[in-house]
Computed example of a mutant assay.
Amino acid sequence: MPDVFFISDHHFGHQNIIDYESRPFTNVDEMNERMIEQWNSIVGPKDKVFHLGDFSFLNQEKTKAIISRLHGYKFLIMGNHDRGRSRSWWIEAGFHEVSEYPIIYDHFYILSHEPMYMNKYMPMVNVHGHIHGQKYEGKQYINVSVEHWDYKPVSFEQLKELVVVSEEQ
């Protein structure tokens, strides 16, 4: 059975993100190549990856070239930097599915780009990106920005373990 993964905020082609987030790369080409390697090191061709936004700053041709190199079935939940382009632009670039809005996965996980307000009594977990190297307070939030996960997608199994650990505390 294929595995499911989550990740966000690659910012492919965005030179300034290297400085903004203290990414360990000397230039954007090195960053792009390393992030593709990291993705493909754990995602298989039949796996599914939910990308929670801010995928690429490149034009459609260059974005398509990157997406075509990434393993798996790719589902984009659009982030703030993706919204200048239409759903069809992203599908033409190579994503299999695209949502402009958050979605609920497995009846328990709210997948969104930006962290969503969750009161402490809400029985769900918000899997998000947007805030890069920062952490959102509360056990109901899991930040899947690339900076937290060595630029590798996070498996659904890893996410479920994080939820069990936080419930036990």
Rank of each mutant, 00 (worst) to 15 (best):
D47Y: 06
K48P: 08
K48C: 15
K48H: 10
V49I: 09
V49K: 00
V49W: 04
V49C: 12
F50Q: 03
F50G: 09
L52T: 00
G53T: 01
G53H: 05
G53W: 02
G53R: 01
G53D: 07
G53M: 01
D54M: 01
D54K: 00
F55C: 13
S56C: 10
S56D: 02
S56E: 01
F57I: 02
F57A: 12
F57K: 11
L58G: 09
N59E: 12
N59H: 11
N59D: 15
Q60M: 15
Q60H: 11
Q60W: 09
E61K: 14
E61G: 09
K62C: 08
K62P: 03
K62M: 11
T63D: 08
T63S: 15
T63P: 08
T63N: 10
K64H: 13
K64S: 15
K64F: 02
K64A: 15
A65G: 07
I66V: 15
I67L: 14
I67G: 11
S68E: 15
S68I: 05
R69D: 13
L70R: 11
L70V: 14
H71P: 03
H71K: 07
H71W: 04
G72Q: 02
Y73K: 12
Y73Q: 14
Y73W: 13
K74A: 04
K74D: 05
L76T: 00
L76R: 00
L76V: 01
L76F: 00
L76M: 03
L76W: 00
I77T: 13
M78R: 02
G79A: 10
G79E: 08
G79D: 13
N80R: 02
N80D: 13
N80L: 05
N80W: 03
H81S: 12
H81E: 07
D82E: 06
D82Q: 00
R83K: 15
R83C: 14
R83E: 14
R83W: 09
G84F: 06
G84H: 06
R85D: 09
